[in-house]
Amino acid sequence: MNSPMSGHRAFVPTLADRLVKAAMTTAGRLPGGLIRAIAGSPRQVDGQTLDPHFQAGLRVISLMAGGEYEDLALEEARETVERSAFTASGDRIDLAVVKDIILPLAGDDPARADLPGRLYAPVDTDEPQPMLIYFHGGGWTLGSVDSHDATCRYLAREGGLKVLSVDYRLAPEFQFPTAVEDTLAAFRYVRDNATELGVDASRIAVGGDSAGGNLAAVVCQQARDAGETMPAFQLLFVPATDMSARTASYETFREGFYLTKATMDWYEKTYIRSEDDRTDPRASPLLAKDFSGLPPAHVATGGFDPLRDEGEAYARRMSDAGVAVSLRRHASLVHPFVNGVGASPVAREALAQAVGALRMGLAY
């Protein structure tokens, strides 16, 4: 299913893609000990042991990929992300509502645009429901509602809430701060039209992974700074929080664990317009001067991830400012574990823990 006006072609899997997905789905149901023969000797770095499902998956992805994202043509890189997500997505989760919609955000502002989105709900009811507004990862350059379809289905089912996945505009066609403006406009639209959308206005969360986690964090900061009603909760998976510096985890996990330092460098250079953007809190929320008064948060990081340290630093800054934060490092997982619901029981457990934090934060 492709979002209307999404700006990308719907990914059409080949027979080989379907066979790989079937194999990874089957493997994802097996305990780690049985996968070890495929994965090889345990990889241990920084006192952590890589999940064998992801270790095996990394081998499969490396065989299927035509190169690192930064070395591919843009459309080929975007298709590669869709393919990787498809093969790790597992059996499709059926929900009562899965509907492509258009968010009417343009108004009279020529800089704004109506955006596609995908609405998920485990039940079809007129009663107001909690909602998670989800922003997909992909370095502000790749990814779509399609690449994160399985993730959003899982969150909607396990969380028992509506999920709205937003197809914000991507770089390099639309550089910083377009994605920030799109995601903030999407949150404001849901907040201001909650009744019409069947949403409980007091239980609206924002969330996302990687670049999407960055955007969710920035939406909360921007709403607070504008003196507006903020999201009630923020769900941040492996968030990018600082473009101005590189932490120790960038060097420790610079290559070999899906997200590489070189790829992250390419994402940032594609997204930002100038070096000055790196220190703008809308691009680097860790550089905000004030962390007080932000919504409660759950921050989930991956042990084998270049972004691990900056995500955890963001959680600590919020906690130090009095924000209620749960921080969970999933020590055996790599960066895109939210896309691995079909490939790893440990990834499913990580998302289940996040859902628990979300339900507690929204009190439903």
Rank of each mutant, 00 (worst) to 15 (best):
G139L: 04
Q221P: 03
R169H: 02
V219D: 09
V219E: 09
T151Y: 01
I204V: 04
E158T: 11
G160S: 11
A150C: 06
V145M: 12
D192Q: 14
L164Y: 04
P177R: 03
G160T: 08
A194P: 13
V199G: 00
A121D: 00
S210D: 10
G208N: 11
Q175A: 15
A216C: 14
G143P: 01
Y134K: 02
R169Y: 02
C152A: 06
A171Q: 07
T183Y: 02
D126A: 15
S210Q: 07
P128N: 08
R153S: 14
R169V: 01
R191V: 08
Q129M: 14
P128S: 07
T178R: 10
V180R: 00
E196N: 07
H148Y: 10
L132G: 00
W140C: 10
Y189S: 13
T195R: 15
V219Y: 05
S210E: 10
P177W: 03
L155I: 14
Y134H: 06
T141I: 07
A179Y: 04
V218E: 02
V123N: 12
G159W: 07
L197Q: 11
P122H: 14
A201W: 05
V180F: 00
H136L: 01
F135I: 03
R203F: 02
F176L: 10
S165E: 06
T151C: 03
A121R: 05
Q221W: 10
L142Y: 05
Y168M: 03
T125H: 04
L197N: 07
L161A: 09
A171G: 09
S202K: 04
A205P: 02
A217T: 09
D126H: 09
L161F: 11
V206F: 06
T195V: 15
